[in-house]
Simulated scan of single mutants.
Amino acid sequence: LSIKVRDAAQGDLVARFDSADATVETAFVLGEFYRRQGAWKFRAVGQGYSSGLEGLATDFGITVDEPQHAAPPATAQAAPPVTAPVTMPPPPPTPAQAPPVTPPPAAPVRLTKVTLTKAAPAVSLTKQGGTSGALKVNLNWQVRKQFSGWGAKFGRAVALHSDLDLDLCALYELADGSKGVVQALGNAFGALHRPPYIHLDGDDRTGAVATGENLTVNLDFKDAFRRILVFVTIYEGARSFADLNATVTLQPQYGAAVDFSLDECTVPSPVCALALITNTGGDLIVQREARYLTPAHGVSPQRTVDQAYGWGMNWTPGRK
């Protein structure tokens, strides 16, 4: 199953979403168009229903009543003349039939994973059922050549003597207008059960911690969020993300995992915007960014991300 969006005037392909996970579904929502800030947007959904159109409609709050089919009227026929009574043997007893078993209504089929691409860069967590519980952000790095034998996960260097230190960070803007950053720099680790409802569990600078760094968002407070930008910076050990092949996974506690790969870094960039999560009318949208940024001379990576996405914060030097 796939869907393509083309520019009506030029015929150019604007977006494409492929879904290869369908099994028993008989109805499928591939994508949605929506209006935002005066422009039309498209997001991939990829949700199937084994209960058909009725299950799809019910999920959107529509009650479906099956029409009752009336039995056809009987047609009167003339009885043939009977010349003599005929005695018929009694019919054999009919074996008892078990009452029909009514199957339970089929629940919507949820996908196990959604992969974002350049053609289909966004997905709705709401449509995937991931609007509560903990949302964990996973960043996996595989080194291609420059750092042969190295790797990092959440900023964790694999080599015993590696000094590569990557920091997973998040800019946030809440519904009340407050803004801030969650990062190891300045010990701004955040909190899960009070604003900003985002928490970084620590700063793994040596690779000794097997789980690396974990960034968690508390979706039980999703209405408190306006937008969250997840990004990663190089604190030390490298000047650029070149030759580092990365995969980003967002795993909701409920619903399908969302993952995507970063493009190859071809610029001297020490900071990369990974994903933008926005609350659009109560619908949480994950947007694949995969955007390498190059700071101007004397400008920090954090301020560079701020300027690129219009956060408008005041920054001061910090250390960890």
Rank of each mutant, 00 (worst) to 15 (best):
R156N: 10
V14C: 03
N279G: 06
A275D: 06
N187I: 02
N140V: 03
S132Y: 10
V258E: 07
D21R: 13
I3P: 00
R144A: 01
A44V: 04
W40E: 15
P90K: 09
V45F: 05
K41D: 13
T247V: 09
L13N: 06
T294R: 09
G298I: 10
G11N: 10
H297C: 04
S178D: 10
G133L: 11
P85S: 13
L139Y: 05
A208N: 13
P121M: 01
G46H: 10
R319A: 07
A242P: 00
V29W: 01
M88W: 15
G155T: 01
V182W: 11
T23I: 11
P85Q: 14
W40T: 14
S2W: 12
T23Y: 08
E236K: 04
V248L: 15
G298L: 11
V137C: 03
A188W: 00
P301A: 09
T216D: 14
D306K: 02
G298F: 06
I3C: 12
A170F: 10
R205G: 00
Y172A: 05
S269D: 07
D167F: 02
G318Q: 12
A15I: 01
V258W: 01
L200R: 02
E25I: 01
V14K: 05
G202T: 06
T87S: 14
D165Q: 02
A224G: 07
T115I: 11
D259Y: 02
Q142I: 04
R16D: 11
T266G: 01
C265T: 03
I285P: 02
P121Y: 00
G151D: 12
L250P: 00
P93V: 14
P81I: 08
D7K: 01
T83H: 14
N314W: 02
R16G: 06
L168A: 07
G61V: 08
G281C: 11
W141L: 08
N140T: 08
P196F: 11
S132N: 14
D283M: 05
K113S: 13
A134K: 03
A159Q: 13
V230F: 10
D7E: 15
L111Y: 07
L244W: 02
Q47W: 02
F28I: 06
Q146N: 03
T211Q: 14
F241Y: 12
V182H: 07
G298C: 07
A157P: 07
V258S: 03
L171G: 07
F241E: 08
T23H: 13
L135K: 04
V299G: 06
A27V: 04
A57G: 06
A256V: 07
G180T: 11
Q47H: 04
G202V: 03
G48L: 12
V181S: 03
Q302K: 05
P85L: 15
P301Y: 08
G310Y: 08
H297G: 10
P103K: 07
T304S: 05
V267H: 03
R16I: 07
S2R: 06
A238I: 00
L139E: 09
A22F: 10
A76V: 12
V181A: 12
L174N: 12
L171H: 13
H297A: 15
